[in-house]
Design a protein around this nucleic acid. Sequence first.
DNA 1: TGACGACCCTCTACGTTCAT
DNA 2: ATGAACGTAGAGGGTCGTCA
Length: 264
Amino acid sequence: MRFVGIDLAWGDRNTSAVVVLEPRDASYETLQTLEWHDALGSNEEIVRFVGSIDKGAGLLIGVDAPLIVPNIHGERPCETQLRRCFGRYEAGPLPVNQRICGGRLRGEGLLHLLRTTLGTTPEYRFPPLEPTVRRCLEVFPRSAQCALFHLKRSLKYKAKSGRSLQSRLAEYARYATLLESLETARPSLLPPSWLSEVPKRYGRELKRYEDRLDALLCAYVVATYWHYGEGEHCCVVGDSRHGYILTPVTPELAICLRKGAAQA
DNA sequence: TGACGACCCTCTACGTTCAT
DNA sequence: ATGAACGTAGAGGGTCGTCA
């Protein structure tokens, strides 16, 4: 079984990062980093890289990018629902529609390529601990951070006007420390060696480090989902037809999301 | 109740810095 | 002097929280 996290750039100009996790032993309780790449270009390049670590058995991929976007205008129902519960944590998702993306949605292209090349489908329903499952699911790191690390507000490490480099570097260090703390979680994540090496200045290196952190978190999220399935640890918001987002949850967030689903 | 700011992420355009 | 690389500002859609 292998778990892949992809931080997918929306456009072609920026690079994407991929982190691959594998269970350390047959107990599946501890995950270790098998492989990573933080400067991948096209979808073809990404699929080639994922294909290079695929053993043909179980493969679960988590992508930080919209994969199913049928709506022309407005936002997807899963985004509305997610914002209602995560908005107070300043972790609401970006509304996505075909108009914003100019009708050219990179995630859909990647999903298609992964399906035809590696046989991973976007169907999110499968029994936990199924060792031969091959799926590709949309995940959202910002909500995952709030739920996994019990944050009151999302981490502010993204470049934004008025945000100093110093404050961003502090948030990166915090993010890295929080990811390291997953060593004592279930499943346990052995921190990769690069995790504590936060770049000290602006530039490509910092951007790629950021992508790697998000890709690592995406991989961990799908691994958690594989372990527990949908329930008190993880929720799938939305559906395969209108688009969905997989996110870890706290018990309070699970109640909020269930309430939202009942109203929808 | 309405207005406003903040937030999510990426892109484009433009200005600045650095190497050749 | 020139071009490449990089940083910054603002736009885009929709919702939530705060304040008047």
